[in-house]
């Protein structure tokens, strides 16, 4: 997978998610409009409005607000992806916390197809890494693919951190289904599978020896060129 394919896949997932948000908005507004029309018509039409429907329309308007926030978050993430794609190969550094957060938004829809939930733990301050944001997105998508190909059905949390050997991402597996052990095995055996980009070799290793829930995605060390 190259940067272009990574970008295309994340964009497709984000647009799918955006269309779902728009679909919810359209139906919520449509239902509120349906009820308002029946009420305006009065008489039997108004009396036939199912009980609780007026309260439901208030909930729907709240839902519209939530979906607008969802769509706005996707738009921000797509903006980031566009900027990262444009500056790929020329950017000197990125904030890993921000990249992980954007990745989770972009890949959310794709994750749902595999019963996966992606989370990015907030960081109090930026975790700078001397890597191109697009390459980090590529690494995160590679981690995602490993989990999905092993069956998915697991919660994956990313947390940007700085260890003494450099910055990276703590990849933690949360609640999962029957395939969780297969995901663990796949991640444990994937260290050498991570792509080598521009002289940087990303490596995925257990956080501590014997730990099956936490992995360290090393991004700031291991320069190969």
């Amino acid at each position: 997978m190259d940067r272009s394919e990574c970008s295309s896949r994340l964009l497709a997932s984000a647009m799918h998610e955006l269309r779902n948000a728009l679909a919810v908005i359209r139906e919520c507004v449509g239902l509120a409009s349906d009820v308002a029309r029946l009420q305006a018509r009065g008489g039997e039409a108004a009396r036939n409005i199912p009980k609780g429907m007026t309260a439901r329309t208030v909930q729907d308007l709240d839902e519209v607000q939530r979906q607008v926030s969802r769509a706005s978050e996707i738009a921000d993430a797509v903006d980031f992806l566009g900027e990262a794609s444009t500056s790929a190969g020329r950017s000197a550094q990125c904030d890993l916390a921000r990249v992980a957060s954007v990745f989770c938004v972009l890949a959310r829809r794709r994750a749902r197809a595999f019963h996966m939930e992606l989370l990015a733990e907030a960081s109090n301050e930026p975790v700078w890494c001397a890597r191109d944001a697009m390459d980090v997105l590529l690494d995160l998508l590679a981690v995602f693919d490993i989990c999905a190909s092993a069956g998915g059905d697991v919660q994956v949390c990313f947390k940007a951190q700085r260890r003494k050997e450099g910055p990276g991402l703590l990849v933690s597996l949360g609640a999962g289904g029957e395939t969780k052990e297969m995901v663990v095995s796949a991640l444990a055996g994937s260290g050498s599978l991570m792509p080598d980009q521009g002289g940087w070799a990303s490596r995925l290793v257990p956080w501590v020896s014997g730990d099956t829930k936490h992995f360290w995605l090393s991004l700031g060390a291991g320069q190969t060129a």
């Binding site: 679909a23 919810v24 139906e27 919520c28 349906d34 009820v35 029946l38 199912p50 839902e63 749902r112």
Partner: peptide, 17 residues
């Protein structure tokens, strides 16, 4: 549809009709 809010609301609109 797994987009529950979408499909539930669509269903209510259809039921009204």
């Amino acid at each position: 549809d797994d987009e529950t809010e979408y499909v539930d609301t669509l269903a209510e609109r259809l039921e009204l009709r």
